[in-house]
């Protein structure tokens, strides 16, 4: 179980890595799509919680024009993002940059989840230390039943149905 979880975590982290690929630069005027690809990663302080590429306010239109200008000047995606961070602060990024104090936001949840997991597994262990090992086998079926006797779930279920009649 734990292993499967690990694999999933890994796979999803991989998937997350692949999503943020940069756009190539060329000499033609920047298209809306190139502008949006960068705008998507930015948050304008005027309309909080709305990414720049879909924010309808005037301020955000200006920002998108700024991105277009900078793209036309041949600036790279990173340079443009950095420009906005310098001008308007860390809050324009979708996430706090992973440095200094901000590390708490990335470290605390996994730590708490880990502590929770440890507590859970310790408690489980405590509870599962066998007092009386109850036989796992359920009540056997009557012979006439067509179900496979191995299927203990089903047999239990039929027990239940009989009880409820």
């Amino acid at each position: 179980m734990k292993k499967t979880l690990l694999i999933f975590t890994f796979v999803f982290m991989l998937a997350a890595l692949f999503t943020g690929t940069a756009l190539a630069q060329d000499s033609t005027p920047p298209t809306d799509n190139e502008v949006n690809a960068i705008a998507k990663q930015l948050y304008c302080p005027v309309c909080e919680s709305t990414p720049l590429d879909v924010c309808p306010t005037e301020a955000c239109k200006d920002w998108r024009e700024q991105i277009r200008t900078m793209l036309a000047e041949g600036k790279t995606e990173d340079e443009i993002l950095q420009h906005f961070v310098d001008q308007y602060g860390d809050r324009v990024m979708a996430e706090p940059p992973a440095k200094g104090f901000n590390w708490i936001i990335y470290l605390l949840p996994p730590i708490i989840i880990l502590i929770g997991a440890i507590i859970l597994f310790r408690s489980l262990k405590e509870w599962t230390t066998p007092k009386v090992v109850a036989a796992g086998s359920s009540v056997e079926n009557e012979a006439g039943e067509a179900s496979t006797p191995k299927d203990e779930y089903l047999s239990k279920f039929e027990e239940e149905l009989k009880k409820r009649k």
Binding site: C44, A59, D62, W63, Q66, Y88, G89
Partner: peptide, 26 residues
């Protein structure tokens, strides 16, 4: 929270002459 281009346009449009500065990082 403005862009240099937008600011320039605005300042020119209203013939502003008094000192002006962007609110860097708010």
């Amino acid at each position: 929270v403005d862009t240099p281009a937008g600011a320039n346009e605005y300042l020119t449009k209203f013939n502003i002459t008094f000192p002006n500065a962007p609110d860097l990082k708010s």
